[in-house]
Amino acid sequence: MTTDVVELILADHRRMEELFRTLRDRGADRAKALDELAYLLVAHAEAEEAKVYPALRRYKQVDDDEIDHGAEEHTEGNMALLALMEVEDTESDEWEGKLEELVTAINHHLDEEERTILNDARETVSDERRAELGEQFAAERERRVDAGCGTVEYVRELVERTKDRVD
């Protein structure tokens, strides 16, 4: 298994997309898929902000504005996640609408992050440094999961703490 931070982030992105497909399937265990997505999404974003984004700011070819924008989009994604988590009936039209808002917000972020921050990192950050960052990212992501980052209470507190990022 790779420790390249770019590859680890991309693997998380692909897992999120798989979970979106499951969440859209009315025959699936949507509550279970949402629980997994909540933990993955929050732990992933917090690990990026704690370990990856600060390190990438040091590279001239990685755009600081894109890193700031990525953090804003994490907040937008968390807000959409919370809105979905607060809908109890996974068969309701409201749940479907909130799901589509979440999918739209996260897919937009994944696309932008992959085209800007991750491509820049792949081109300008050494393989060795990307491996170090990958180890730090994976450890931080796991630490956040173990701390319960995917609960509705934690997501609510996180949104409250970071909502000032969003214009």
Results as ranks from 00 to 15, higher is better:
139 A>K: 07
54 P>S: 10
114 E>S: 11
162 T>P: 04
42 V>T: 06
126 S>I: 05
80 A>V: 04
37 L>G: 05
128 E>F: 11
119 N>L: 14
151 T>S: 15
27 G>I: 01
2 T>I: 04
32 K>P: 00
9 I>T: 00
40 L>I: 01
39 Y>F: 15
123 E>R: 05
23 L>E: 02
153 E>C: 02
139 A>V: 01
115 R>P: 09
100 E>V: 09
58 R>L: 14
36 E>F: 03
112 E>Q: 13
39 Y>P: 05
1 M>V: 14
142 E>M: 05
47 A>H: 01
61 Q>L: 12
144 R>G: 00
100 E>F: 08
117 I>Y: 07
136 Q>A: 15
49 E>W: 04
26 R>N: 11
24 R>N: 12
31 A>D: 12
23 L>D: 05
160 E>G: 01
33 A>S: 04
141 R>V: 04
40 L>V: 00
12 D>T: 01
50 A>E: 15
142 E>H: 09
132 E>Y: 03
28 A>H: 04
9 I>W: 03
93 D>L: 10
87 V>T: 13
99 L>H: 10
142 E>Q: 12
110 L>M: 14
120 D>Q: 15
23 L>M: 05
80 A>K: 13
149 C>R: 01
101 E>W: 00
155 V>P: 10
89 D>C: 02
82 L>N: 05
78 N>K: 06
157 E>K: 06
130 R>N: 13
138 A>D: 14
131 A>N: 13
76 E>D: 10
36 E>T: 03
63 D>R: 02
70 G>N: 03
36 E>A: 01
154 Y>S: 06
160 E>Q: 12
91 E>F: 09
84 L>I: 01
88 E>V: 13
73 E>T: 07
160 E>H: 02
37 L>M: 00
64 D>V: 14
89 D>Q: 06
137 F>N: 07
